[in-house]
């Protein structure tokens, strides 16, 4: 009996263009599996963003529009509202990096969350600007060496990073907000469950749902894929704790 196959929402013959061992591939696979399981593929519109996540439309077999850098949640707002005005309800989600969601696009992200736009945002947090070669981003942790913090992130010189999920959870319009990681099978299975919940909350019209995914960037961290996972488990997930920060069904 076949117990695993390539998700139907992944384009046939598509090959991920990420670096070896990058968690983006796992994250997109999970999104595709959830789209399959909830039978959303034919009703979904994905919003791609700038950065490593930009080529989403090359991998996911759903209608997709690329947003300018940081504006994915604004574009998603327009897509969702327009279809509602046309008397259709479409499933709309963004797939963004932490730089896109929480730095250049923080205003659009947070205001979509505050308004309670009935969309889902997936944010890949790999603690740096990966596509451009690993510069200091809004989530770069204290002490982390990057291409633009060669001596390590420093409180006086660079200032503090943002804890994205914790901030989004404070917004009244948010239905579900969690942070997950992908460093082992158990966490990947949990991440999928959280993505599924976020998608279901949108289907139920409950408002903005959000999943922040702690991800590796082996190339820019200058670690092997396995070492990078270890870093998430032992360091990053201590600074950005995993868990559900808001669930309007339980709160």
């Amino acid at each position: 009996m076949q117990v695993y196959s390539v998700p139907k929402s992944i384009k046939e013959n598509s090959t991920f263009t990420f670096c070896p061992g990058c968690d983006h591939g796992v994250a997109i696979k999970l999104v595709a599996e959830v789209l399959d399981e909830l039978n959303l593929r034919e009703n979904a519109i994905a919003i791609a963003s700038s950065g490593c996540s930009v080529l989403l439309y090359d991998f996911l077999d759903v209608d997709c529009i690329e947003a300018p850098h940081g504006r994915a949640c604004a574009v998603a707002t327009g897509v969702k509202r327009a279809h509602r005005a046309l008397k259709n309800d479409k499933f709309v989600f963004t797939y963004q990096g932490d730089g896109d969601f929480a730095s250049i696009g923080l205003a659009e992200s947070m205001h979509s969350a505050l308004r309670g736009e009935n969309i889902t945002a997936i944010c890949i947090n790999n603690t740096n600007y990966g596509m451009t070669g690993g510069q200091l981003g809004p989530t770069t942790v204290m002490g982390q060496v990057t291409a633009t913090s060669p001596l390590g992130r420093n409180r006086q010189y660079h200032g503090f990073p943002i804890k994205t999920a914790e901030h989004i959870a404070l917004c009244e319009g948010v239905s579900f907000c969690s942070r997950v990681a992908l460093y082992n099978v158990k966490n990947i299975i949990n991440a999928k469950a959280q993505i599924k919940k976020a998608f279901e909350y949108q289907q139920q019209g409950l408002g903005f749902s959000f999943v922040e995914i702690l991800s590796t960037c082996p190339t820019n961290w200058k670690l092997s894929p396995s070492e990078a996972h270890k870093k998430i488990e032992e360091e990053i997930s201590k600074i950005y704790p995993l868990g559900i920060f808001k669930d309007i069904k339980n709160d």
Partner: peptide, 15 residues
């Protein structure tokens, strides 16, 4: 900035 990008998304729907 948000307004023009909302317009961008909405226009993709054909509205």
């Amino acid at each position: 900035i948000a307004a023009i990008n909302m317009a961008l998304g909405a226009a993709s729907s054909g509205a």
